[in-house]
Design a protein around this nucleic acid. Structure first.
Length: 430
DNA sequence: TCTGGGGTCCTAGGACCC
DNA sequence: TCTGGGGTCCTAGGACCC
């Protein structure tokens, strides 16, 4: 049987802070978002006193004072480093794995990997890094997630490890899991399911597939299959190419003038284009957006966005800045209090694949086959093409994107190099 | 007073083409 | 009454995730 484990670090950011400050063990700890606005990580003790995930800091000040909660600004350099340590331990354990996020990884388990192995692995990670993890095992990614959820929710009972593939009463687990406890089911889908009389994972598992398909499309069908042990989500050992890069920030106090917005945008363009260069990519489209304060219902709201397809792909900060300024002027209206602004760089192309002239006509239709031939001619031996066209109609639909999606550089497959960019994020304040 | 930032995928509708 | 139909590309917006 296919067995996948999901290893998930517990309260990751808080746990990281504790590694370097052991006196925090057993005490309530929270870590804040970028601008110290929201609580994005909570220790068990902080959860126990009722601090909700994502809560604005100012709403919790009372509780924090009363219980002596330790509050930290986020320190992504630290978290990125701790993450790398955990991942490198995991990498040595299994033939294949997918780093899913800063604090999670899916592992492809060998046949002989028992629950005891998982417990030993958990102990090793704790001993070597100081980070507690939970491990869930299932026959699909979604079921591994579900198993992990159970391991975490019943830590005293499970010891942080739960193997759904060998559990005697899987239906019992399904029955006690509400649909929105499933990976990929949020508030809205849960509501839709409820409308069909589906309240638990067990209901969902035994639902009518045709009805699911009709009401929730391919997303629903995929969830349904994964839940029934039919894998639809592959383990992605190599992270796919980045589709876009975004940079945005909220203002501490609202901003009104074009000049201030321009200054903020200059910052965003610098950060985002730096990232694009580091990935070895070029930008073909840029979008700029503004937002007034959505929480102030009584203030006039204006949250425009605008995009432009560039004449020619670039990763130059100054070129992108010119585009950003132009776009900003088109959407800027005086008289509003802007709370946030940002940019998105999208339709990214590989720098190495780009040859001047080939992509410079974004508005016209492009004959992909012709370009493939031309690129291969320029790159050398046409008998052994470096570039191939991805087959159309693969499982992940080939529709809905630019012609660039049809490209695959063969050489990419030989450079399984994955660097996270967390190190680039700002240091914690104070 | 104070309310994060960065992603992915899917769908629907319009423009355009033959 | 009934208005061609099938395809691609682009964009906006929704939903979800960490």
């Amino acid at each position: 049987m296919n067995r996948i484990a999901l290893v998930d670090c517990n309260n990751f950011f808080c746990s990281c802070e504790r590694v370097f400050n052991p006196a925090l063990q057993g005490k309530p700890v929270v870590v804040l978002s970028n601008n110290d606005g929201c609580i994005i990580s909570r220790s068990e003790e902080a959860k126990a006193i009722g601090i909700p995930m994502g809560a604005p800091l100012h709403e919790q000040q009372e509780v924090i004072r009363k219980h002596g909660v330790h509050v930290f600004s986020s320190n992504y350099t630290l978290y990125g480093d701790m993450s790398a340590r955990v991942m490198s331990i995991l990498r040595d354990e299994v033939p294949a794995m997918e780093v899913y996020s800063i604090d999670e990884a899916f592992l492809q388990l060998p046949n002989n990997f028992s629950e005891e192995h998982a417990r030993a692995l958990r102990a090793k990670i704790l001993q070597w890094t100081g980070i507690p993890v939970c491990i869930g095992i299932g026959s699909t990614k979604l079921l591994a997630k579900l198993a992990n959820r159970h391991a975490k929710k019943n830590k005293a009972l499970t010891g942080g490890v739960f193997d759904l593939t060998h559990y005697w009463d899987p239906d019992g687990i399904m029955a006690e899991t509400p649909t929105d406890g499933l990976w990929g089911v949020g508030k809205n889908l849960a509501l839709r399911l409820k409308g069909m009389g589906i309240k638990t994972a067990l209901d969902f598992q035994h639902a009518d597939p045709a009805a699911i398909r009709k009401s929730m499309g391919v997303v629903g069908e995929r969830l349904f299959r994964e839940l029934n042990g039919i894998p639809c989500l592959a383990l992605e050992e190599m992270p796919p190419d980045r589709k876009g890069v975004m940079a945005s920030r909220s203002f501490g106090s609202p901003v009104e003038s074009l000049e201030e917005l321009e200054e903020a945008l200059a910052n965003h363009v610098a950060r985002a284009s730096e990232k694009v260069r580091r990935f070895g990519l070029l930008v073909t489209r840029m979008e700029v957006f503004l937002q007034t304060n959505r929480f102030k219902k009584d203030e006039p709201q204006y949250s425009p966005g605008i995009g432009i397809t560039l004449d020619r792909p670039t990763h130059s900060t100054s070129e992108l800045m010119i585009a950003a300024r132009t776009l900003l002027k088109r959407i800027y209206r005086p008289g509003y209090l802007y709370k946030k602004t940002g940019i998105q760089l999208v339709n990214l192309v590989d720098e190495d694949a780009y040859q001047p002239g080939l992509f410079d006509t974004p508005k016209s239709r492009i004959d992909v086959d012709k370009i493939v031939d031309e690129l291969n001619r320029r790159l050398g031996d046409p008998k052994n093409p470096v570039i191939t066209r991805a087959s159309q109609g693969t499982e992940r639909s080939a529709s809905g994107g630019s012609e660039r999606k049809a490209w695959k550089m063969k050489s990419e497959r030989h450079s399984p190099h994955y660097t996270t960019d967390w190190n680039e994020l700002p240091e914690a304040k104070g």
